[in-house]
Every structure is written in C-alpha cells, then in structure tokens.
Design a protein around this nucleic acid. Sequence first.
DNA 1: TCAAAAGTGTTTCTTTTACACCCATGC
DNA 2: GCATGGGTGTAAAAGAAACACTTTTGA
Lengths: 244, 244
Amino acid sequence: MNIADYLPTLSIDSVLICFHNEELEVLLLRWKNSDFWSLPGGFIKKNEDVDQAARRILLERTGLKHLFLEQFQLFGKANRRDEKQLDELLKTINFPEDVTSWLEKPFYTLGFLALVRREEINACTDQFTDQCQWFPIQSLPSMIFDHPDIIAEAKKQLRRQVNYLPLGKSLLPDTFTMKSLQLLYEVLLNKKFDRANFHKKIHKLQVLIKTGTLSTGQSNKSPYLYRFDDKRYEQLMEEGIGYV
Amino acid sequence: MNIADYLPTLSIDSVLICFHNEELEVLLLRWKNSDFWSLPGGFIKKNEDVDQAARRILLERTGLKHLFLEQFQLFGKANRRDEKQLDELLKTINFPEDVTSWLEKPFYTLGFLALVRREEINACTDQFTDQCQWFPIQSLPSMIFDHPDIIAEAKKQLRRQVNYLPLGKSLLPDTFTMKSLQLLYEVLLNKKFDRANFHKKIHKLQVLIKTGTLSTGQSNKSPYLYRFDDKRYEQLMEEGIGYV
DNA sequence: TCAAAAGTGTTTCTTTTACACCCATGC
DNA sequence: GCATGGGTGTAAAAGAAACACTTTTGA
C-alpha cells in the first residue's frame, strides 16, 4: 500500500450482511494483537469514484465482483475515532512509519451497506487484521471506534428501505421456498406474518416463478421452489414492494 | 477564508427547499461574472463535525440557526466537476492564488437537504457569488458541475422519505389551513387527494390542534387554522406518517 | 392411517374511496 | 337568497387479518 496514492480525510467501511441460520449476520475482521473487531474497510485512491473504491475494497476482501452495494451515511463526527484506542491499536503492530502516520490522520468514513450470500463469500483478512468471522447482528463482539454505530445505522437503513432493497434476491439462494422468504422478512422486520396471507401477498406481486419442488425428506408435503422474475423484480424495486 | 483551516477532499452542498406559490422552490446563488448558478455550499474546518459544518455554512448564508437539515448522499464521482467549466469560472475572478489552487483540488461533496420557510430567510451571497434567488424546483436555470444531479437526488429523497420528514412543520407557517397542508402534500407527491378523505386521514393522526379561523374575505366559510401538536408530531416522525 | 407442514379458500373486519349533504360567508 | 368553498357523513369497494379446509409426504 503506497500511501501517496490515496486520498486523506475520507475512508470507507462496509457492513456486509447475509442471512444464515434464520438470522442476519455481519462480517467482521479482528485487529491484529487485539480483542477488537472492525468492519471491512479501506481508503480511496486519488481519482477514483467512491462507489468504485467500495467495490474494489470488497473485491479484495471477499472475491465478490457482483453484489448489492449502496452508500447509506457519512459518519462525520470529528472525534469519531477514539484517540487512545487508535494509539493502542497502532502500538501493537509494527507498521512502516508512513502507514502509521497515515492511519493517525483524521478520517470521516462513508458507510456502505452490502447484501451477500454467505456461501458465495471467501472472506480473508487484510494487512490490519488476522481473523475474519460472521456474527449474528444481535450479538456482536467488541468493536473499534464508532463501528457499533455504523452497524446500528445500517440496521435502521435496512428497515426503512425494506421496500426498495433487493433483499430476497441478494440474501436468498437462486431458488428458495416460500417459507424461507417469509422467514427472511420476519427477521428483517422483527414481526410474524400469517403464512396463508403471506402467500397471497407475494403471489399478488407476480414476482415468483415456480421451478420445482424441494424434497425435504420430512413426512409432509414438499414445498415448491421459486425463483424471482428478474424484470418484475426490478420494477418492484423502483415502485417499492409495499411491505411495512 | 484561511485555506489552512479547512480539510481537503470533502465539501458540502445544501439543497434548501421552501414551499411558496403552491410550488417547491430551491435557493441558488449565481457565480460571479457568469450565467451559472450553484447550490449554497462550503468547506469543512479541521476538527469540525460534518453536520456542524453544514449548519455553520447555512447560518452564514441565511441567518437561520434552527432548521431541518439532514445529509442525504455523498456525490463521489472522481470527475464530478467539469474541469473546463471550473477553469473558466476561476479565470473570471481574481481570487488570491491560494484560494484558486484550493478550489482546483478534487472534491467530493456531501449533499444536505434543508427544509425552510422562505419568509424566515435573509439569503445573502458568498465570496464566490453575486446574486441569490429562489427557483421553482420544476424550472431551474443552468447550474455548475453536478448540481442538477444533486437537486434531482434531493427530490427523490424528499419523495421516498416523505413519511419520515417534518415537511409540514418545516415548510408551513406556525398556523395553517387544512387546504394548505393538503396542497403541500399534493405538490410533494404529485398527486391529488380527495378533500374530505384528506381531512379524515389527518384528523385520525391526532396531530392537529385548532387555533381559530382564518378570515379570507371570500364569500364562503372561513377555514380553521391549525398548528401541530409537537409531542405527537415527533412521535409520528419516528413511526412514519404513512402517507404514500 | 396418521402427523406434520405446505398450499388454498372463506369469512370477517378494517380501511379506502367516491360522493352527497350541510354550514358559514359576502354579495 | 345564492354562489362559493369549507367541513362532515355515508355507502360501496377494496384490502387485510383470522382461521378453516385440503393436499402431499414419510413413517
């Protein structure tokens, strides 16, 4: 990392979210020689689009080229990074002098929300971190700086924009059952739906295509498998699904 | 303006919106010696909260201390400012050398949405501009750089967040008639409401308090004047009004 | 044949919509 | 009194919610 290639002042942190074990999970990296975790992030190159920078950073971290990624808020408090904590984190690692002084500069950070499928991700660490793990969004470990706030705001964004985000398409596998779709929205909105009414509501949207059935091995009827009608799905994202 | 006090890389531009003549209007400033208009904006001081910077800049421009102000998007294209245009704008004014070279640096800009009452504003120009005017949001003049995009995104934000923005409270006078409230939402959503049903909808929200009647001088019944119940209003902003 | 879970249908209640009616005001 | 626009009431239509019924599957 050649410091001279990067812009000061503004960094990027991404909240990667997946749906796993009937829960939303967030990807975190552990800082070297510490018990603190942080969001995958990075810096912006000179002459680079900010959106492009966010994609580049996530590509390095996950190997994913195509994923839903959207900025949601600039975290702009002057004292957003605890100085003491920053010093301690830097002390434990022997970065080259130029990297250390770069990291000590003040940075606002732009928060991005990314929606991914856990099984498509091969997450890896960066030069600041030595471990990489998914955590249920309801039980997160200690994090550096204002990263807990960033995740909290991402959650709010997720709820408020629920009608305009490609949640099903980004978080579920290509084919899925009605039950898993319902479960996803129940978790997102923290609210139970009536199974029968959920069916009707979704079918009225005309966004699902039956692709077969899933043999569960259970002693009951096999549920249908669906996939999304891409054209109709895009249309719904424009108009809003009308969930809440 | 002492350049050394300010951060590079990131600037601020605000879309000030008022409701006047049954239309939404935007405040623009005209660049000195040019036919191009721009949003009121500025730079961030070292060690300053970004939100605070946006307030400081608007205070200088409008004299308003309290107003609704919220960031809505970072405009992060590397080439968002047309170089040719920038050069031409700078050529026509004799800024000190340090200011010129400051302005020539690359800047991303953070867009803020501000909701104001036109009559409370005493808008004035800054060192870059010589005129200041409100324009109907539907008929805007030529603007510099990506400022048309910024306004377009602000409009989208306004529509999408309509349920969570204090539109009535920020854009209408302290007391107002049901008709003017209806008109505001009709303009915002570009959609007509049935007068009777609008009454019922609003009354069910239990957010209005009757404060008297307005003598219009017209040969018909005087409409009631209302004001908002502050406590209930805040509550509604949290939950969302449920308009669209 | 039974239990379990998926899929579908029906009834009820609530909300939305359309529109009619009444009321105050100035000429 | 009458035209005008504000305020209120009512009936029809649409939509949401609750819940019962039917189907499929493996044991």
